[in-house]
Design a protein around this nucleic acid. Sequence first.
DNA 1: GTGGTCTAGACCACC
DNA 2: GTGGTCTAGACCACG
Lengths: 126, 126, 126, 126
Amino acid sequence: MEFQIDSNSSSPIYSQLREQFREAVARGQIEPGARMPSVRDLSRRLVVNPNTIARAYRELELEGLLLTRQGVGVFVAQPKAELTQQVREKRLVEAVDQFLTEAIHLRFSQADIAEIVAERAEGFRW
Amino acid sequence: MEFQIDSNSSSPIYSQLREQFREAVARGQIEPGARMPSVRDLSRRLVVNPNTIARAYRELELEGLLLTRQGVGVFVAQPKAELTQQVREKRLVEAVDQFLTEAIHLRFSQADIAEIVAERAEGFRW
Amino acid sequence: MEFQIDSNSSSPIYSQLREQFREAVARGQIEPGARMPSVRDLSRRLVVNPNTIARAYRELELEGLLLTRQGVGVFVAQPKAELTQQVREKRLVEAVDQFLTEAIHLRFSQADIAEIVAERAEGFRW
Amino acid sequence: MEFQIDSNSSSPIYSQLREQFREAVARGQIEPGARMPSVRDLSRRLVVNPNTIARAYRELELEGLLLTRQGVGVFVAQPKAELTQQVREKRLVEAVDQFLTEAIHLRFSQADIAEIVAERAEGFRW
DNA sequence: GTGGTCTAGACCACC
DNA sequence: GTGGTCTAGACCACG
């Protein structure tokens, strides 16, 4: 996959990488089992400190989205559902509320929201 | 209004306060013109340094949500719209995509999403 | 760039720094992408507490004129326009009226004003 | 004259009063010799602390725009030019530069500026 | 090395 | 009483 580092962003690089990966997975642009570029390789291509790449990979592994096979490489993990129903719902509610708060401050209407959600949802993999 | 500080959160205190205020406004739980607790008062109640409270208030003022009257106190501002259509749409799209990414990782369906959005939207002020 | 602190001024230090930076940008003396002196460095040179420098930088970042890359440094941002036409015009009118009020109290004629505006405008970047 | 207190402004009340008076004089809306409302009277009408009115009057008197005749009242002063040519020019240049800096950040063109200056100048008394 | 956060405490400005 | 500014200094996050 292609990572884009936005140096105009205030969010740290390791975090941008992690979020881009999460979004690419959600969009179905990355297949489970696929091999990720090595830390050193990606570090050279993006001109980023290897520690930064390693941190992004480490956090994605902790989240269960990547799998490191020692001496072999880093791979996209098979998705598995580990969270309880309760936790999943709590997190979803938090995410929705955060989104709605932002939408209201941007002065969009409830109809606008429904529309944009449906529209953008098409770019994801359900 | 009631502020809650989560000391386990990685998000800084001033930022937690700002976000809680933004959400309360979006929910219509705070009326424009209302008086906010004084910096010193809130500082004592939350057991947080006054400078930290002041920073949250100051940033909300720069954002146009609060309004300080020197020597008098801090008040909730009248809402106004200053951003261009283009910027508003860009920010909304970012917020939606972030929300949808999260929702998919939590393994909710497109139907679930539409439902939860409609459901939670009821708690906000459109 | 060279900052000058006027300790006789009633305007706070962080504000003087912010205004000087804004003017330097308007004069085209600062290129987008250029690196700003580090907080600690400027703090030493101006003999001012680092927090004060950081506050000036932070506010310029919120205004969209600077951009911080964590652990790397502070940089001059690419300019962008985010305000609505209405707000821009309102602020311009306020600025003009303030200027004209001052000019009249200084007893300059309308012709003087037109001349000085044209003259000083040459030092700026249009 | 009619004073308007903008409680949505971050500038202190005494300062708002002073600036409004200065602008009214520059617009020719106030005649030299005219009687100003008493501190107590204005204080009641504007629902403002008498100390605040007194401070505005005091600063305008220091600036030479008002004249207090003990036991009689406060009057609009005859304009007199006390500043040297050098000081007048220095202040004008500062005012112009400040205005131009703002105009550029609001992304107006040099032509826009000339136009708005001429337009707004009509409301003032030259 | 860079900036970010938070505390403690002094002093000032405003009403 | 209110908030605003500035300092000094500790500790953390980032690359």
